[in-house]
Structures are given as C-alpha cells and as structure tokens.
Amino acid sequence: MTSESLHPAPAPARRTVVAAVGAAGLAVALSACGADDNASDTVGSDNGAAGNAGGTELAKTSDIPEGGGKVFSGQGVVVTQPTAGTFKAFSSKCTHMGCAVKGIANGVINCPCHHSEFSATDGSVKKGPATSALAARTITVAGDSIMLA
C-alpha cells in the first residue's frame, strides 16, 4: 500500500465549486442571449408556395387561427394569419422592454407586461408604450407546413 492510497487528495474548496458552477451558468445564459439576438435579425416574410422546404417547421397552417396567431417562444417568433391563407411572422420580443408577447386576437398581438399592442398584419404599433414595430421574421409556407427560415 502506498502513502497516496492512505491520503486521498483534498476535496476542492466550497468557494471553488460555487465559482465554477456560477461561471458555467453565466456561459449558458450568455450563449442563449446571443442566439436569440441573432435569430431576430432575420427580416422579411415570404408567403411563397411549395418550392422552399428548408428551415425549421413551426406549425401546420391549420394551427394558426384566422385573425389570430400563435407564439413560438422557443424560436422567439409569433406567427399570425391576418386574413385567410396569409401568414406573417414577427419577433415575439416586445420593442418596449423586451417582454415576450403572449396573446393574439382580433388582428392584434398583445404584450402582457405594459399592454403594448401590435398589428398582426405588419407588426406596427397599434397602442404604446412601445414606439417601434415588431421585427419581421422570414417564414415560408409549403403545402400545409409553416417553416421558419
């Protein structure tokens, strides 16, 4: 038996463990923020028919109610159907304080934090305190699938 097997290495200090866990958590949070910021840089809306099947499938066209919409928080996007067969997409991040929009009804996208309202047709501000429109996002509609570019 060696002296090493009789005396195990000392455990790391509590402060070292807490610092390491905190640093790992910060790294995850920062990378998540960076990914969300980059995703909202995509501009435009493409309501083209079949032919562009690339991207991430968000929903089926039947999942998006006419005059309403659906928020996809994991992708940071809200998809609306302002009129039958017309689909639009916008960032789900309110331009006032960055809260996530929640409800879409009667052609209006609502932010629950400070009650800003945005047009489901073009993302423009219908009621403040927000002063700028939701950023447009690029989607394609191929058959009954709505794809995020």
Rank of each mutant, 00 (worst) to 15 (best):
G44T: 05
D46V: 00
G67W: 02
A59S: 00
F72H: 09
K60N: 13
A84R: 14
S45D: 11
K70E: 07
L26R: 13
V18W: 01
G54I: 06
L30R: 10
S31D: 03
C33N: 12
Q81F: 05
V28L: 05
T56F: 09
T56Q: 14
A84L: 10
A39M: 13
V18G: 02
G54E: 14
G54D: 15
A32T: 10
D37Q: 12
A53E: 12
V28C: 05
Q81D: 04
G48E: 13
G67K: 03
D63T: 00
T86C: 03
T56D: 11
V78E: 13
V18R: 07
V71E: 06
A84D: 14
E66P: 01
V78I: 08
G68K: 12
A29G: 06
K60S: 05
S40M: 11
T61I: 00
G76V: 03
P82D: 08
P82Q: 08
Q81L: 00
V43F: 11
D63A: 00
D37I: 08
C33I: 03
S62P: 04
S40I: 12
G44I: 03
T83D: 15
N38F: 11
V79W: 05
G48R: 12
P65W: 04
A49S: 06
T80Y: 12
V78H: 10
G34V: 00
A59I: 02
A59M: 02
V43S: 15
A84E: 15
T42W: 04
A53P: 03
G54V: 08
S45H: 06
V18D: 08
N52Q: 11
S45R: 09
L30Q: 06
G54M: 08
S31V: 13
V79G: 04
D46E: 11
A19P: 04
G44Q: 01
G69R: 05
I64N: 09
V17M: 13
